[in-house]
Design a protein around this nucleic acid. Structure first.
Length: 202
DNA sequence: GTACAGATTGAG
DNA sequence: TCAATCTGTACT
């Protein structure tokens, strides 16, 4: 099983968001391994994107392309292939994978996973185990301790390469929960595998 | 310091 | 429809 290499992640965010679909996120917890196929993602594309944590109005920028940096989002600026994870609504972790070059605050939010066959045999309700960004983190026990970790080097979390999903199998739609971002909320930057029963419900 | 909203979820 | 309750921002 081959890990996705650095080169995969350092490309454009929209491309990475689409091509992550179908690959496997693997997390080691003690001796156990949890595996889930990535079936739904969302792209967040940096300082210009009003829905991004790095959004900074142009009038506040000291130099072109400057993004907002806070204690929470600083790992978003790492080179593609690192983890940006943060607490949402005070309760749920949101797991993101950084993209593009170091210094560019762009990332892909992983919104849903399809648990492995093995997992389906063990759990009665796999359909609802990871069909939402907060739920997949709860299932895989992802938290702040993973913030900034390198997916191409880590011994406890990585993405295994699978056969590419065909273009016709991928659907694009509006991102969820960001209506405050006005025109940016309409961009079709949520991607998911068509007819997959494990994607999040709106 | 206070007030409020947010890349969510599950219960009622 | 609502509340759980951390983080960041805009105000007092």
């Amino acid at each position: 099983m081959k890990k996705l290499p650095r080169k995969f992640y350092t490309r454009s965010t929209l491309r990475v968001a689409k091509e992550l679909l179908g690959n496997y996120l693997i997390v080691k917890i003690g001796r156990k391994k949890l595996t889930g196929k990535i079936v739904e993602t969302e792209a967040y594309v940096g300082p210009n994107d009003k829905a991004s944590h790095a959004y900074l109005p142009p009038r506040l920028r000291k130099f072109p392309g400057e993004g907002k940096i806070t204690c929470r989002n600083k790992t978003e600026y790492l080179e593609g292939g690192h983890i940006y994870i943060y607490l949402c609504y005070g309760m749920y972790w949101q797991f993101n994978i950084t993209t593009a070059k170091e210094g560019k605050p762009e990332c892909v939010l992983i919104r849903a996973l399809e648990p492995s066959i093995k997992q389906k045999k063990q759990d009665a309700n796999t359909q609802k185990l990871a069909n939402g960004p907060g739920k997949l983190c709860r299932w895989m026990r992802l938290d702040k301790s993973f913030d900034g970790e390198d997916l191409t080097k880590s011994k406890r979390i990585w993405v295994a390469q699978e056969l590419k999903i065909k273009r016709g199998q991928i659907a694009a739609a509006k991102r969820i929960g960001i209506d405050y971002a006005k025109e940016w909320a309409k961009k079709p930057w949520r991607f998911y595998i068509k007819n997959n029963p494990f994607i999040s419900k709106k």
